[in-house]
Write a protein that binds this DNA or RNA. Structure first.
Lengths: 338, 338
DNA sequence: TTTATTTACGCAATCGTTCCCGGAAAAATC
DNA sequence: GATTTTTCCGGGAACGATTGCGTAAATAAA
């Protein structure tokens, strides 16, 4: 019943040849006579022969698959990134195995070990917001395992990195709010140990500085779960609203946080942009259809996936250990509603 | 430099045993003396030994991985389904390999062949809107390859199926529009050869029938690319607007189509629900934040993924060919804005 | 003490493929 | 016609793990 795929041995037997000859006819060719080669090729086509990738993997000690770990594929930014990753990987004949950490460190570690044990050839990762212990990643990296970080970078590990100019993106968004006339801008951001948090908060602070505005640190609210938990964002917004001197605008540093703020503000019956200004990072294509069409910072997610994958494959296919690591920085764009 | 994983041979050599003894010590145990077994176990732990899954796959002729083909992971419904799939698959020790057809038949076929050649143990698929030639799927199925359809079913192929009660969902949505007072309800739907299209359109027609309303077939607009192309939906909406007797409401049968309608209506400067009523299938969690908070039909996507995966694993792990196929039908829910 | 049984382990085949090595036949050279 | 070179192909090991079969030693039964 169960389908048995044709093997090289089947072809050899049918044609009265040896497996080595068949194998060579299918690849080398020049060591094999044209007649035999054609014979093999024809019969292979007839049997719908496909080399068994598992046998190949065992022999070549590579699986031609790469792992991707993101927090959530339901996140527009990540799903767009994955499209970019797949476009490059598939073209080069690699399978992409996608895993989600759901912003949990434990899930990330278990997924990491699982992927490693599944013998993937390399890893693309945007670390979870809960990741502070880098030991598991470092262990893998020290074995010479190819890793490329994208979006949420880990600086302590020396390898290729792809990210956007988070500082500039945040700076532009904050400046935009200032230009709209907002003065007291709060910030709702991700877990404090994420690279994107540091960089985006820095951009936000720099923009305020430039405008000569100095605000208390309490106007920056960190969401440890990065907006995974709806109430976490709602609480952060509530806290901002309860500040002695209440902010007149909010800058949110990620997709989930931006939409979370809108949700919270709607619940609090605060009109955007009248009662509260809002801008933030987001790659959702529904932004323009929201009841409050806000300005957002958009990342070139697809391109980011492409670039990261190219770097990873480069790392994987390099003959000798790569010592020279690149950090690609892409530009964000500020999208304002029509 | 490159990390070389410990093998059973390494352990055998270090301990002066044969590979068979080591292998058995790691599994059987009762054929091996307790002393030797402990020795092997200790040394394996010390070397951080993990059985090579590729070697195992080659031997066992199964890879403990399943393939999933959906049109778009960026689609809320599918990303939620995938979460359900992963939750079950990972728990049972299976890897999930996700692929996207992007609603293209060619991409679906190539992805299908690619997955099959990557020796996955089974397939979960929601066919693309462009799929009318079923030959590739049938070929795979005839070989006894385990396939489970979810959401977008192929009736011609006898296997497990998981879907929602599309008829009822569409019936409820249409009835809701009728109750709001709309009389002339147009329908924007997916490619005509999709199961969900047939079922949802049937539900829509039945609801109109029940209300004693008979509308021309021209009020049903089919989008061959299922909303992948923005302009396709925009065109469909335009056509509806140019009908001699213009409809006063629209029922959209999928996620992309629903948001596509909103986009198109906004562009046409038609207010929802005043100028045009709208309801449709959608699993996006941003619906309630849209400028026009519409009523939507929601599918239990996560559960659907879970159920489909359980059926697939059951199929994969069954000793003898399964002849008795199940069709699981889940219920939709009508979500109205507060 | 002899025979039968168990215990504990090794040998070798197997999965599908590649590739090094060796060798016969054909072709080219002297 | 004899030698060298080329062409073309087969044998067999290897990748990492499992497993049926064989067998020596240890133990139990006679």
């Amino acid at each position: 019943m169960k389908y048995k795929a044709a093997t090289i041995k089947d072809i050899a037997q049918a044609l009265g040849l040896s497996t080595s000859t068949v194998s060579r006819a299918l690849r080398d060719s020049h060591e094999i006579s044209a007649a035999t080669r054609q014979l093999v090729l024809d019969h292979a086509a007839q049997l719908n022969y496909h080399p068994n990738p598992i046998a190949l993997s065992l022999k070549e000690k590579k699986s031609r698959s790469i792992g991707v770990i993101v927090s959530e594929i339901a996140n527009s930014f990540f799903s767009q990134t994955i499209n970019g990753i797949e476009s490059v990987a598939n073209e080069k004949g690699y399978t992409v195995i996608i895993s989600q950490s759901h912003e949990s460190f434990e899930k990330e570690v278990s997924t990491l070990q699982y992927l490693a044990s599944r013998s993937i050839d390399g890893l693309l990762i945007s670390v979870s917001s809960a990741t502070k212990d880098l030991a598991p990643l470092k262990a893998l990296h020290q074995y010479g395992f190819p890793i490329v970080f994208f979006d949420r970078i880990v600086e302590e590990i020396a390898t290729h990195q792809v990210r956007v100019d988070n500082f500039q993106g945040a700076y532009n968004a904050t400046t935009h709010l200032l230009q709209q006339g907002y003065q007291r801008i709060g910030c709702i951001t991700n877990s404090a140990h994420l690279s994107i948090t540091r960089e985006r908060v820095a951009g936000y602070v720099a923009a305020l500085d430039k405008a000569g505005i100095r605000l208390p640190a309490s106007l920056i609210k960190y969401c440890f779960h990065g907006g995974m938990l709806q109430e976490e964002v709602a609480d952060a917004v509530q806290e901002l609203l309860q500040e002695k001197k209440r902010p007149d605008a909010i800058f949110a540093t990620s997709d989930k946080l931006t939409t979370g703020c809108i949700r919270a503000l709607k619940k609090a019956k605060l009109a955007i942009p009248e009662d509260m200004g809002l801008t933030g990072f987001s790659n959702s294509d529904l932004i323009e259809l929201l009841y409050a069409p806000i300005t957002v910072v958009r990342q070139p997610a697809f391109e980011m996936g492409q670039v990261a994958t190219e770097l990873l494959l480069q790392l994987i296919e390099s003959k000798r250990p790569v010592k020279d690591f690149e950090t690609k920085v892409l530009q964000t764009s500020l999208i304002t509603p029509p």
